Amino acid sequence: MSEPSNPRQEAERHLEESIITVREALSGLRYGNVSLTIHEGRVVQIDVTEKRRLKPN
Rank of each mutant, 00 (worst) to 15 (best):
H14Y: 07
R23E: 12
R42S: 10
I38R: 04
V22T: 09
E16P: 00
A11P: 03
N6F: 00
L54V: 15
E40D: 15
I46V: 07
R8H: 10
E16L: 08
L15Y: 12
E40L: 09
E3Y: 05
E16Y: 01
I46Q: 00
Y31V: 13
A25I: 13
E10K: 05
E12W: 06
L15G: 04
E16A: 06
E24R: 07
T49E: 11
K55E: 14
I46Y: 00
H14P: 01
H39E: 14
V34R: 02
H39C: 10
R23K: 05
I20Q: 02
N57H: 14
T37D: 05
A11K: 11
R52S: 14
E16H: 06
V48Q: 00
Y31T: 15
I20R: 01
Q45E: 15
A11V: 11
L36I: 11
E24T: 01
E12V: 14
E16M: 08
I20T: 07
R23C: 04
H14L: 07
N33Y: 14
V34K: 02
E17Y: 05
L15V: 15
K55A: 13
E16V: 14
G32I: 14
D47S: 09
R30D: 13
A11M: 10
R13K: 12
I19M: 04
I19S: 02
N57W: 13
V43N: 02
T37S: 08
G28Y: 04
M1V: 14
S5A: 10
L15W: 08
V44Y: 07
E3P: 01
P56Y: 05
P7F: 00
G41M: 07
I19T: 07
V34Y: 04
E50N: 08
I19F: 02
L36N: 11
L26R: 02
R42D: 05
L29Y: 12
R52I: 15
S5I: 10
N33S: 13
A25W: 03
V22R: 00
R42P: 02
E12S: 09
E3D: 11
N6L: 08
V48P: 00
L26A: 11
E3S: 08
D47L: 05
S2F: 04
R52T: 15
I19H: 01
I46G: 01
E50Q: 12
I20A: 03
N33F: 15
I38W: 03
A25V: 13
E10T: 04
L54Y: 08
E17L: 04
R42Q: 14
V48G: 03
L26E: 03
G28C: 03
K51R: 13
I19Y: 01
S18M: 00
V43A: 09
A11T: 15
R30H: 11
I38L: 09
I19P: 00
E10I: 02
S2C: 06
